[in-house]
Amino acid sequence: MIHSARVANSYRGEWEVYVVTDSPSPREWPEHSFARTAPAPTLAERTAALTTLGYEVVDGATWEWHELDDDVTDPVRFLGMIDVRRIAAGDDR
């Protein structure tokens, strides 16, 4: 099953990655905080965080970035998205 992983600078300003699952409650989505406001997590850090959460990037998928702005005078927040799947155990792929 394919899920969407997202990396964002949260409302606290810290970078985090989370996986949107079938759970209707975002509180139940797997997440990892990078516990910093800058710099943005590197590709290697994002990949390692997803692995820790039990997910891997779908073959051929690349990060897509979106700028989130509530008002032209507000600080800009960024959201990155990529398709992921649970890491298969053994030969379950």
Rank of each mutant, 00 (worst) to 15 (best):
M1C: 13
M1P: 09
I2M: 10
H3I: 01
S4K: 10
S4R: 12
A5V: 02
A5T: 04
A5S: 04
R6F: 06
V7D: 02
A8Y: 04
A8N: 06
S10G: 12
Y11V: 14
Y11L: 15
R12A: 12
R12Q: 11
G13H: 12
G13W: 11
E14N: 15
E14K: 10
E16I: 04
E16D: 10
V17F: 00
V17A: 03
V19R: 06
V20W: 01
V20M: 09
V20E: 09
V20F: 01
T21I: 08
D22W: 05
D22R: 15
S23K: 03
S23M: 08
S23V: 00
S23H: 10
P24C: 08
S25R: 07
P26G: 07
P26D: 13
R27M: 13
R27H: 14
E28N: 13
W29R: 03
W29F: 12
P30E: 06
H32C: 07
H32G: 04
S33N: 12
S33R: 11
F34I: 09
A35P: 00
A35E: 15
R36A: 11
T37A: 13
T37S: 15
P39G: 14
P39T: 11
A40V: 08
T42W: 07
L43H: 07
A44P: 00
A44D: 15
E45Y: 01
R46C: 07
T47H: 03
T47K: 01
T47S: 08
A48S: 07
A48T: 09
L50S: 04
L50Q: 00
L50A: 05
T52D: 13
L53K: 01
Y55S: 03
V57W: 00
D59G: 15
G60F: 05
G60L: 02
A61L: 03
A61D: 02
T62F: 04
E64D: 12
W65E: 08
E67H: 05
L68P: 00
L68V: 15
D69M: 14
D70S: 13
D70M: 11
D71R: 12
D71A: 15
V72S: 10
V72C: 04
T73L: 15
V76A: 13
F78K: 03
G80H: 00
G80T: 02
G80L: 02
G80Q: 03
G80N: 00
M81D: 07
I82P: 00
D83Y: 12
D83S: 14
R85N: 05
R85I: 02
R86D: 07
A88D: 08
G90C: 09
D92R: 10
R93P: 04
R93M: 11
